[in-house]
Design a protein around this nucleic acid. Structure first.
Lengths: 203, 203
DNA sequence: TAAAATAGACCGACCGGTCGGTTTATTTTA
DNA sequence: TAAAATAAACCGACCGGTCGGTCTATTTTA
């Protein structure tokens, strides 16, 4: 797991790429911006990536990999599904608070996905995997009797969408509602819809 | 309310602009594309709009105006708030089904809002107004006793986010879940969280 | 073991196409 | 017939990608 020189360079490039992407978006981001931000040269960057597009596609890999470690950990931990969901929400709230850049970048990738099939396919894969994770939690909850018998796929979709709504706060004025406050309310809201009521549990 | 020649021309331009925007996104959309799509000339377009940016900013106005007619109608109709919310959801589902283009364009405007303060301000205004509409419905519901005493702003935000999630389906594969099916489930979900349970109503 | 050879990493000036916007000429309208 | 509207040729800043070349570290050779 120790990084080679090449991995370090790629990190260096992708760090710069993310920063530029968030500031300017895909189209307006210049390879020369990445050159400057990364303190490397154009030649160096094109040594590691054959095109602007390849570089940004790899940026998705980079972040998926980074997040998936914790995500898998949450799913595999030995906790009641309701707690797992809470952890999931909390993880994204914390991540967004400590560094919203990847979230902002996601908006840009959405926009890219609309135009470019390669970006679409890549994002599709990311989402499919993420949805499967959530669905897994839901299934366990339903199976163990903690959750109502809901449609796992639709519920997972809904949860995912609500997590993504974190982004709304990065961009717009919410008139006095904080992200944390909002997300906590949403978490309760979703869990209220999922958890069996006490009477039902007994029967 | 009858349209002048100029209004017609602007419609013609903005129709083309939307079409191009959806296909290529803001940056990759060429004014020459709009020229071709609108069957006009560059001179004509720059006669009505002083820049690419102005044109696209006006595209937002165009659609806000178009939607706001029905939206206001829904809020002002004499129906129980729960029904108003259902109508709201239904309206967007129908709109998306008959023509998803404006929804796709919204993703692009999100991306624009991140980079350009003018787009951000404009979208902020749109969202603020829309949130106020929803909040108004919520308030009435709470006041009339149909709804629980929820935080109007947060609930409105949540509803809006869920409506926007329609877009997810335009872009990605949901593995067998249809937009309509999804949205109907979500509507029920939200209303379940909002409506007082029968026992509570009686007391 | 010093010189020669090779490979990998990196540099940055430069080229060629692109596209928002301008200009100028022409046609339509009132 | 003057103003409004439209047409289309044109300008030039801009930027992704290229390429000849350098620099450093490792390996081979004699």
């Amino acid at each position: 797991m120790n990084k080679t020189k090449q991995d370090i360079r790629k990190d260096q490039i992708l760090d710069a790429a993310l920063s530029v992407l968030v500031q300017k978006g895909y189209e307006r981001s210049r390879m020369d911006d990445v050159v400057q931000e990364s303190q490397l040269s154009k030649g160096a960057i094109y040594w590691y990536y054959k095109s602007k597009k390849e570089m940004y596609l790899d940026l998705i890999n980079f972040w998926v990999l980074r997040y998936s470690v914790t995500l898998n950990h949450i799913v595999e931990e030995d906790a009641p599904p309701s707690q797992q969901l809470k952890d999931l929400f909390k993880y994204f709230i914390d991540q967004n608070e400590s560094d919203p850049q990847p979230f902002v970048a996601l908006t840009e990738f959405w926009s890219m996905a609309q135009k470019d099939p390669d970006f679409r396919k890549k994002l599709q894969k990311v989402y499919t995997h993420f949805l499967e994770l959530i669905e897994e939690i839901i299934y366990r909850g339903v199976h163990s009797g903690e959750f109502k018998k809901v449609n796992g796929r639709i519920t997972a979709l809904s949860i995912m969408v609500n997590i993504e709504s974190i982004n709304w706060f990065t961009l717009f004025e919410a008139h006095g509602v904080s992200v944390t406050e909002y997300m906590e309310t949403i978490t309760d809201f979703i869990l209220a819809g999922l958890l069996k009521k006490h009477e039902e549990k007994i029967t």
